[in-house]
Structure formats: structure tokens, C-alpha cells
Design a protein around this nucleic acid. Structure first.
Lengths: 191, 191
DNA sequence: TTTACACCTTGATCTAAGTCAAGCGTTTTT
DNA sequence: AAAAACGCTTGACTTAGATCAAGGTGTAAA
């Protein structure tokens, strides 16, 4: 039983890899353990890795000039995260990634991923298909943000992702939805 | 000179295709001409194609229950558009795509794209790399929407995409930025 | 050439949601 | 076990931006 079972299962949902391809893929993986409140990405440093969450919860957020946090993504088991812009362009990150719980993540370097995607067709397909889904989801979020009220966004999220909503602090959810923590509290109370 | 010069140039910015690969790719392409105000995608119908804009301008928008329009994307020459969710899942579209000018677009069917991506590694790479960029951009937009004021979003857009801002009606820009047309007008006047 | 529609502007008003501030349980830390 | 920090709530107040409504201008159509 590979120590990379979880991520290999994830890949298998999209494509089938041969044994040698699995070996090539796992050879670029690295497991990292992080403690609650530890940063995995920090502004100023290049986000070199694509990170897959095996266990735990991680949020990516942006700290604006006024010192306010805006959550880019909240991930739990079986999610990828990174500062995509930094990762793709090898420029300093603008976001933080912070462990919301003690977590186990699998990391893979940009260069290694690109090299493998150039060499292994199935792996390229895997990333393509996965990213296409992520894009469709991101587009959805944009529209929800500009077309729904705070209250609608809150209840939609809680309904769609109860397992995340119940697991992360409310102020994180608030900053993900673009609502103040006080407003979230009021929305909950008037129901 | 191929009649698909523009899109082949676009591909060439990411990967190199052999002559036979170019032939295979162009064989799945179809050129369509649309008049200003014509719909390319409509709710209820599956968005079967990935559409590349050769000439013209197209916007994708969502019409909410209250009858208000929310623009998902504004594209001009050299951009792709589709209702990604509908396209990927072959479910009825939720969005409209409307030509803002008389336009020429190149269309490719989902099944054809998937078949080619399964067969031609370089093409799979091309779509993967392009979509990764699009995702990074979409993430950016989410953060801008939740962290900046209407006024900041407006000026940022105008500065970043003057050629689009000057080409499309202001109410389209407004619905893209999540601002009312009246507010856009006021933002412009107080500068 | 006048009718009409599309798009933009300006003014008056309204309201959802943000801000500021205080208080209160619950975890952490020491 | 006390102190400190964290996360959530509630109240009073403020405000950015929406809504409603009317009028103006240019372009296209009849």
C-alpha cells in the first residue's frame, strides 16, 4: 500500500496510469506535516509547490493594505491549493496559506510537474481535466459574488459545504464570502 | 495561408504542433459568423462548443430571477468563451453568450476536443496551460471583487483593459464589475 | 425627418451591510 | 489556576452603493 494512496485515488478518478507512470509521479511527491496556524505560503516567497491536502484543513488568504484578510480558498481533504499566480510565474506570492488544523499535505514542484506533464500524456490529461473543473467552479463563484446578497451567499455555502462550514471558524467563512464577521453573526441569528 | 491562422498562432504560443497534428486540429474547427446582438449560447441549450473569437466582441452573461444581467466574461479577438459548466457536463446552459459586434468565431465540439486531447499530447498540453492561466485570472477576479470598492474595481479594469473598456457599452462593464450602471456613471463624473 | 430605441446622466431617496465598541464564554498559554 | 488570547455576539451608528424616476443625446429605423 503506497503512502500516496489518497492522491493516486484522486488521479485515478480522471485517468489510468501504468505502474511506471505511477512510479514517476510518486517520485516527485513529498509529504509535509504542518501544525495548526503554520504558514505554507507567505507573501514575498515563491509558491513553488502544488499542494494536495491528505489530512487537515488549509486556507489561502490575501491581506490587504488595510490589514483585512480575504480568503481565496478553503480546502480540506482531497483538495489542491497554491498561490496559482506565483506558482505559474515563479514570482513572489501575494497570498498566505495557513493550516487551520494540524495537516498532512503532499507537495509537488512546478518544474517536476511540468517535466512530467511534458513526458507523460495521461498526467497532462489529469491536470487538464482537474483544472477545467476548478475553472468552472471559480467562474461560478464570481457570478455568485456579484449577483447574490450576503445572506444568500452564506446559506448557499452552508448548504453546499456543510462539512467545511462546520469545521472552520466563522470569520474565515466570512472573509471567503466577502462578508464581515458581524454580518455573518446577524444572518445566523435571524433564522 | 490557413484560414485558421489566428487560432494556430494562439496554440503556437504554448506548444509546437507537427503538420499532421495541425491537420487533425483544424479538421475539428468550424468558422461561424454572427451579427451584433445575436446569441451564440442560450439557457436551456447545451453549450456544445469551445468558441474562439477571431474578430469581434462577445459577452457571456447570466440573467437572474429579478431580470438583472450579470456579465461572466467579455471577450474580444484572441479569447475563448463558453458556458464552461454546460460545456463540460453536457447540461443545459445557464448563461447567454451575445455578440456585441458582428463577429467571427471558431468553434470546436466537446467530443472532438476530448478525442484529440486523448490522442495528441501537445494539444492536451496546450489546453492545460491555457486553462491554468485562465484559472489564475479567475481567482484574481474573485479576490478583487471581495476586497476592493466599486470605484477601485472600475479604475483597475479601465487601466488594465482600456481597449475593451472603450469598446463595450458601459452597462456591460457595470454588470461585469458588479456595479450598477448609475454608479459607474457617477464614478466617472467624479474624477 | 420624425419616431423610436439604446445608452448615459443626474437627482432624490433608501437600505444592506460595514464599522466601532463593548461584553462574554472557551480555549490556550504561562 | 490565573492570565491572555480567540472567536462570537449584540447594539448603536454610518455609509457606499442600489433603486426609482426623469430627462438628454445620438444613432438607427420607418
Amino acid at each position: 500500500m503506497s503512502k500516496y494512496k489518497e492522491i493516486l485515488d484522486h488521479v485515478a478518478r480522471y485517468v489510468e496510469l501504468s505502474d511506471s507512470e505511477i512510479a514517476a509521479f510518486t517520485s516527485i511527491l513529498k509529504t509535509t506535516r504542518v501544525k495548526k496556524r503554520q504558514f505554507i505560503i507567505q507573501p514575498g516567497f515563491v509558491s513553488e509547490y502544488r499542494n494536495y491536502i491528505v489530512k487537515g484543513a488549509v486556507r489561502v488568504f490575501y491581506l490587504d493594505d488595510a490589514g483585512k484578510e480575504h480568503t481565496v480558498s478553503i480546502g480540506i481533504e482531497d483538495w489542491f491549493f497554491t498561490d496559482f499566480h506565483s506558482y505559474l510565474n515563479r514570482t513572489p506570492a501575494e497570498y498566505y496559506a495557513e493550516a487551520l488544523e494540524d495537516s498532512v499535505i503532499i507537495q509537488m514542484k512546478y518544474d517536476d510537474v511540468e517535466e512530467l506533464c511534458g513526458r507523460i500524456h495521461a498526467l497532462c490529461q489529469y491536470f487538464r481535466l482537474y483544472i477545467e473543473k476548478a475553472l468552472s467552479y471559480s467562474n461560478q463563484r464570481v457570478i455568485t459574488n456579484i449577483s447574490k446578497t450576503s445572506e444568500e451567499r452564506y446559506w448557499e455555502y452552508v448548504t453546499k459545504y456543510p462539512q467545511i462550514a462546520n469545521r472552520v471558524p466563522q470569520y474565515v467563512l466570512a472573509s471567503y464570502l466577502g462578508i464581515s464577521p458581524e454580518s455573518i453573526s446577524r444572518i445566523r441569528s435571524r433564522s
